[in-house]
């Protein structure tokens, strides 16, 4: 997905910010060689994906290329599960359910259109943007930009105050025993972030000096940010949290319509053209 996606981006987007990122990508590829297995440039931002074994070397390379500032390190769990089962039932276009039942962008957009009682004229523009931006669904779980093959990913972001650019680095981790080398000796700030990621996702960081709880009490069980960690309060007490579209009181609605109408009149020219 990633390579085709990137080529498409290269053709239709030529903003100077993206150009700079693409040059940077070439530089990174030159330094890392075949280790770059996924890449993505969009909206003035750069993502690369490396194998977990190359994680430490990637960090070293980034630092030597001037990315001296450590932004963050964390993880993603791509398992498409609804944290709140009731919400998934009550709401047909629930986000996590999308990945399983309606992976197609058009289907989701249609579902949205049906779901909404009063489609507004401004819908069209958004739906068009929605279709173009939706990445092609892979077989199995939807993963993010720069691709991914496993359930868990570790990702980190390094920034360069002198180049004024940043890069997001991702790596796929093993499903059963996710583990990746610690980079705390390269970026000192990573020490706490790795502790946090270990606590939240259960990733092991060989080489970390002191992997212990940072936020939660020592007796806490489970890894809260994994998608299969349930929020007990939600299991006990249903709350229509994701459905927040009930009708407003008439006075409030009239006021909001006035605001939206004013906004529409103001932006009528360019937006209606873009939408149709």
């Amino acid at each position: 997905m990633s390579s085709a996606d990137t080529e498409e981006q290269q053709q239709d987007q030529t903003s100077p910010a993206d150009e700079a990122r693409r040059r940077l990508l070439d530089e990174l590829k030159g330094a890392l060689g075949d280790a770059v297995i996924g890449e993505h440039v969009q909206g003035g931002d750069l993502w690369i994906r490396v194998p977990a074994g190359e994680w430490r070397r990637t960090a070293e390379t980034c630092k030597s290329l001037g990315f001296t500032y450590f932004d963050f390190l964390s993880g993603i769990d791509w398992m498409p599960s609804a944290p709140n089962p009731e919400d998934a039932e009550t709401l047909s276009v629930e986000p996590e359910a999308d990945a399983e039942e309606a992976p197609d962008a058009e289907e989701a957009a249609e579902a949205e259109a049906e779901h909404e009682a009063e489609p507004q004229p401004s819908e069209a523009g958004t739906v068009a943007a929605f279709e173009t931006a939706q990445p092609e669904p892979e077989s199995g779980w939807t993963t993010g930009v720069a691709g991914g093959e496993t359930r868990f990913q570790v990702f980190a972001r390094f920034h360069s105050p002198t180049r004024k650019m940043g890069v997001t680095v991702k790596a796929d981790l093993d499903d059963e025993s996710p583990s990746v080398a610690s980079i705390h000796e390269i970026y000192f700030g990573a020490e706490w972030h790795e502790r946090e990621t270990w606590e939240m996702y259960g990733f092991a960081f060989p080489g970390h000096p002191d992997l212990r709880h940072i936020y939660l009490p020592g007796e806490f069980e489970g890894y809260p940010l994994r998608k299969d960690f349930p929020l007990l309060a939600r299991e006990v007490k249903p709350w229509p949290g994701l459905v927040d579209v009930e009708d407003l009181p008439p006075a409030e609605e009239a006021r909001q319509d006035a605001v939206i109408n004013a906004a529409q009149e103001d932006n009528a020219g360019e937006q209606s053209e873009g939408g149709s």
């Binding site: 949205e112 909404e116 401004s122 523009g125 939706q134 529409q264």
Partner: peptide
């Protein structure tokens, strides 16, 4: 700006 009544953010 013009936004739909139900805010749905495209994938990305």
């Amino acid at each position: 700006a013009k936004v739909p009544r139900i805010i749905k953010v495209p994938a990305g």
